[in-house]
Design a protein around this nucleic acid. Structure first.
Length: 197
DNA sequence: TCGTAGATTTTCT
DNA sequence: GAAAATCTACGAC
């Protein structure tokens, strides 16, 4: 029922990709459980011109090398105790990527609850990058995985009625880049992260 | 309910 | 050794 999205979906400018990703499904085939979440919030990272990106004026390193590769791959990054998920965009050699910030749980709710903890409310399961990865069971093991193949892939979702955009969050020391309206999210969706609006 | 401080792992200088 | 694209706990109102 859920089918990996076609390769050409990823082959577009990073800002368009970030917007297109809103409303698509993330599917994770975890053992015999199928975990599905609908993306409601993303952020674009514009490598060379973006002070906030890890790839800013930097040569590829072990941490960022996937970002310099072909689009459609998983670039994930571990910060403090949490794992963040990205989709690589842009052609080979251009370090563009889209950070997936939040999603709405669709299927596999029992497993997600197990991953996140019994005491949390549904709306707190996936309304942030670190929480989302944990709920879906995505770890650094998926670094460099292609977003168009099982067991972890993007699937086409329903039409999105309203997409909003605004300044990004969580990058306070990035100077001018803070003001770039490169954050996309679905209007009025309760699963969008409200951290530092 | 809101705002602030501390946690803790990976990577780079 | 320091910083990072964050989360959670806890104190105040």
């Amino acid at each position: 029922m859920y089918q990996p999205i076609e390769k050409t979906f990823f082959e577009k400018p990073v800002l368009e990709l970030a917007e297109s990703l809103i409303g698509q499904y993330i599917v994770h085939q975890c053992a015999d459980q199928l975990l599905v979440a609908r993306i409601v919030e993303t952020e674009a990272y514009h490598g060379p011109e973006d002070r906030a990106a890890h790839s800013f004026r930097n040569q590829p390193t072990k941490r960022t090398e996937v970002m310099f590769g072909a689009p459609g791959y998983v670039y994930n990054y571990k910060m403090h105790t949490h794992t963040l998920m990205n989709v690589v965009a842009g052609p080979v050699g251009v370090p563009h990527a889209v950070l997936i910030r939040a999603a709405e749980p669709i299927a596999g709710l029992e497993k997600m609850k197990e991953n996140r903890g019994e005491h949390l409310k549904l709306k707190d399961w996936t309304n942030g990058p670190g929480k989302l990865s944990k709920a879906l069971g995505v770890t650094m093991d998926y670094y460099g995985h292609y977003w168009g193949e099982t067991p972890l892939f993007i699937a086409e979702g329903p039409e999105v009625i309203a997409i909003e955009k605004g300044p990004r969050v969580g990058i306070g020391n990035s100077q001018e880049a803070v003001h770039f309206p490169w954050r996309f999210f679905e209007k009025d969706n309760p699963f969008v992260s409200k951290y530092r609006v």
